[in-house]
Design a protein around this nucleic acid. Structure first.
Length: 237
DNA sequence: GCGACAG
DNA sequence: ATCTTGTCGC
């Protein structure tokens, strides 16, 4: 998947500051598409996540699954020194560079990306999922375990039920119960998808755990016990 | 000034 | 995110 210029992005963001980052977010948010522009169902879905080694090196993992049976068809890993601190609201400036390095090594370009973190459910409507969408042009969905902003009511208990996450009159996303009796997930469109499509995609990818299979694979590979997950992907590369 | 605060 | 033992429950 060689459509991305990860090195160019690294150069462009080399001297990024929180103030410049916020300004860039306001500009980039105007490029986000919230209409569904992907054929459903898709052929493949990818999960992306980033882990940290010793706090100074970021490790990104991308795993592409066949949508029909959620079996892995490709994956890629990348490592890069950390160059930006974790600041709530500016997560993409810390994780996008290494994620793009991993994405460009993919042999199978996925139809869409499920990201760890929010999409437009963000103070300036550009969470990491939305930002990755604008940077790659790929449809993306934000899948977060905690709220960043917005308000919501009680979430119904049944699997697949949800309640809107809103900021005033604006609906930013949904708080989704992927499993009964388990803490809900925060789902929001990233790019080229609307909320109903985002919810359908996430529910399809979520089988027997709280998190979608895409996220579980990426999370496992990016973590420190990634070796164990790698063993199940050996024959792919 | 006081809370809230993705990963 | 990461560090890190035991423990409750199916």
């Amino acid at each position: 998947m060689a459509i991305i210029d990860a090195h160019q992005l690294q150069r462009d963001w080399a001297d990024m500051t929180p103030a410049r980052a916020r300004a860039l977010q306001r500009e980039s948010a105007a490029r986000v598409h919230l209409r569904t522009e992907v054929a459903l169902p898709p052929d493949t879905v990818a999960g992306v996540d980033v882990g940290f080694e010793n706090g100074d090196t970021a490790r990104a993992a991308v795993v592409v699954l066949r949508y029909a049976d959620l079996e892995p068809v490709d994956y890629a890993l990348a490592r890069l020194p950390v160059t930006f601190p974790y600041v709530p609201g500016l997560l993409s400036f810390r994780e996008c560079p290494v994620i793009l390095r991993a994405l460009e090594q993919l042999r199978v370009a996925p139809d869409l990306l499920l990201c760890d973190g929010h999409g437009v459910a963000h103070p300036r409507r550009l969470g990491i999922a939305a930002h990755l969408g604008v940077l790659t042009g790929l449809p993306t969905v934000g899948v977060a375990k905690k709220k960043l902003c917005g308000r919501h009511g009680a979430v119904p208990e049944g699997r697949g039920e949800w309640t809107p996450l809103k900021d005033g009159d604006e609906t930013l996303g949904a708080v989704l119960r992927t499993r009964p009796g388990v803490k809900p997930l925060f789902i929001s469109p990233g790019h080229r998808l609307d909320l109903p499509a985002a919810l359908e995609l996430v529910m399809h990818c979520t089988t027997r755990y709280r998190l979608p299979e895409t996220t579980r694979w990426a999370d496992g590979l990016a973590s420190n016990r990634g070796q164990r997950w790698l063993a199940r992907l050996d024959q792919l590369r």
